[in-house]
Amino acid sequence: MSGPELHQVGIRNVSFGVGVKVVEPCNLYGCTIGDGCFIGPFTEIQKDVVIGARTRVQSHSFVCELVSIGEDCFVGHGVMFINDTFASGGPARGRKELWRETRIGSRVSIGSNATIMPVTIVDDVVIGAGSVVTKDITMAGTYAGNPARLLTLRK
């Protein structure tokens, strides 16, 4: 019987802006982190993700491929981004053509333990803790629930 294939947690091939703070352990690879960002511990940010300037990604969050997050955003503890919608009836199993992208605008705050499916979210949105965002958000405001629904419009 052979042992497991081991992969080390680490920071590899990341483009960092000026004044970025990363609290280890983190698994960051092939991504771009803008100026003045904060990345909390036990966070994974995968390749080709772009995080805008002054955005905070709190601990235990997972940001998968095909996600872009704007400037001045807040991603709470334990937020999960999803790129595989199981469109074929099960996991894509690495078939990237089945994955979908997520685009988060600027000044978006996402509460702890929210799940963000492949969607587009405009600027100036608040997502409540524990919410599940399943559809595009096209108007600034506060959203919460499963599925996330508009609570109040932003003026």
Rank of each mutant, 00 (worst) to 15 (best):
T115M: 13
V125H: 04
G78N: 01
S109H: 12
E101I: 04
L6I: 14
G111K: 03
I51N: 02
V126P: 07
T152S: 14
W99H: 15
A144I: 01
M1D: 14
I33W: 03
R12M: 12
C64K: 03
S59L: 06
M117V: 07
V63S: 02
A140T: 10
N83F: 08
N146E: 09
V22G: 08
T55R: 12
N113D: 12
I82S: 07
K135S: 10
N27V: 00
E101Y: 15
Q8P: 02
S15E: 13
C26R: 05
A53L: 00
S106K: 11
P147S: 01
R107G: 11
V108H: 11
D123C: 07
K96D: 14
G78W: 10
N146T: 15
F16A: 12
T138K: 15
G89T: 06
I45L: 02
A140E: 09
I51L: 11
S109A: 15
K21P: 04
P91H: 11
I104R: 04
L28F: 01
S109I: 05
S61P: 02
I121V: 08
G89F: 10
E71P: 01
N27S: 13
E24D: 13
Q8C: 12
I33C: 02
E101P: 15
T85H: 04
V14L: 11
I137P: 00
V122G: 00
R149F: 01
G70N: 11
T120G: 07
V23E: 13
V122Q: 04
L153P: 10
D124A: 09
V20G: 09
L153R: 15
F38E: 07
T120E: 13
G141C: 05
S61G: 04
G130Q: 03
Q46C: 12
A140M: 09
G128H: 09
Q46A: 13
N113I: 03
T85D: 12
P91R: 08
L98K: 07
S68W: 00
V108Y: 04
P147Y: 01
T120L: 07
F16G: 00
